[in-house]
Simulated assay, not measured.
Amino acid sequence: MEDQTISLTTKSGASLKISTFFPPPSKEEQNNPLKHTLLVFLNGLILPRSLWAESIYHLLSLRASSHLPAGIITYDRYGQGDSDPDPSDPPDTPYGHDALTIITDLHQLLTQVSHQFLKRRLESLELVFVANSIGCPLARLYAARYPGSVAGVLCLDSMMANSDFVDSLFPDPDDAAFESGKLPPGISVEDIRFARERFRAFFHPSVTNPERFDRRNMAKLLPRAHGPVLPPVGGTQGRRPRVVVVGHDAVEFARQSEEGSLAVPKRITNAYVDPAWSEYNKGLTQLGESQDRTSPEGGNVKIAKGCGHFIQKDDPVFVAREISTLLDYLSRTPS
């Protein structure tokens, strides 16, 4: 991967840091079924583009004798990693750009990259997104805004875009209808209050972040996990995009939630958080053409064994294999 700096023509005075790989021309290029495919990695809020590097290294090793896409790109969004802050953010509030602004910027970035490095119009390419956490709803919003452009999405433990991570997960002890006697065994009212406080502080959409990504309208933009479905590839007569949904390992996720900075006991995660996340992931499998049933616990959702929320960090080899499998499928399936 080669590190680059690029300035969007639509936002002067600020730069984005990107890392790219473009395979050298070969005699077999015309016979490459992935010659129109651009592989794009979308970060969550926490981990920057550099955390994809090991997965991409293993991907290129896996595909040393297989077809490669026309290009691979990772990038840090404005205000994230090595990129500059978004010059359009207002100076007098901790809230800045929202998801719709991000996908507009992403489209401009991909337009410039395809022209500068591939000498092609972006519209001549099919996009495959590899996304973690909030990158997954960004992929969905991009596909809806630019219909026909997305051929596949690998969702690595998607953020629950329609959740406020407080009332949507936990009962409210201060609600008149709350009944402490109906709490799961081993869970107290104090446990519920603590979990609500911690999740509100870490994950509520109103919580600000260094990126100044305003998440307060996410639930309005994507109120359902299972819809709207992704538009067909290349137009109304094309096939549905391939959607591969990967969830975290419930045991490892609960352990990391308890032992990390969140410090929420495993019993809380197991009783309230994981069931909601599992149901959300099942909804995501309905967005496009889904993978075959792979596990009894997840149905069409694959489970990344031994991985918490940041699957690309915990098991980059697993991520590389999933990308390679997705590319193999797309190479066999005409649009």
Rank of each mutant, 00 (worst) to 15 (best):
E2S: 14
S12I: 09
K17P: 00
P25S: 04
P33N: 07
L39Q: 04
L39E: 05
L39C: 08
V40F: 04
F41R: 08
L42W: 14
L45A: 10
R49K: 15
S50V: 06
L51D: 03
W52L: 04
E54K: 15
Y57N: 10
L59E: 07
S61N: 06
L68T: 08
P69F: 05
Y75A: 12
S83G: 12
D89H: 12
T101G: 00
I103M: 10
T104W: 07
T111H: 13
R121C: 07
R121W: 06
L122N: 03
S124G: 02
E126W: 02
F129D: 01
A131I: 14
Y142E: 02
P147G: 02
V150W: 12
G152C: 08
G152W: 05
G152N: 12
V153Q: 13
V153F: 11
V153D: 12
L154S: 08
N162T: 05
L169Q: 01
P171A: 10
P171G: 02
A177M: 15
F178V: 13
P185G: 02
D191A: 13
F194T: 14
E197A: 15
F199V: 05
F199Y: 11
R200Y: 15
H204I: 06
V207E: 01
D214I: 02
N217K: 15
K220R: 12
L221E: 00
P223S: 13
P228W: 15
G234H: 04
V244A: 09
V245F: 00
V246E: 00
D249R: 08
A250K: 13
Q256P: 00
S257T: 15
E258A: 09
L262C: 04
P265G: 15
T269L: 03
T269A: 14
N270K: 13
A271C: 01
Y272W: 12
D274N: 14
E289C: 04
Q291P: 03
D292W: 06
N300T: 06
V301K: 11
G308K: 03
H309D: 03
A320Q: 10
S324E: 05
S331C: 03
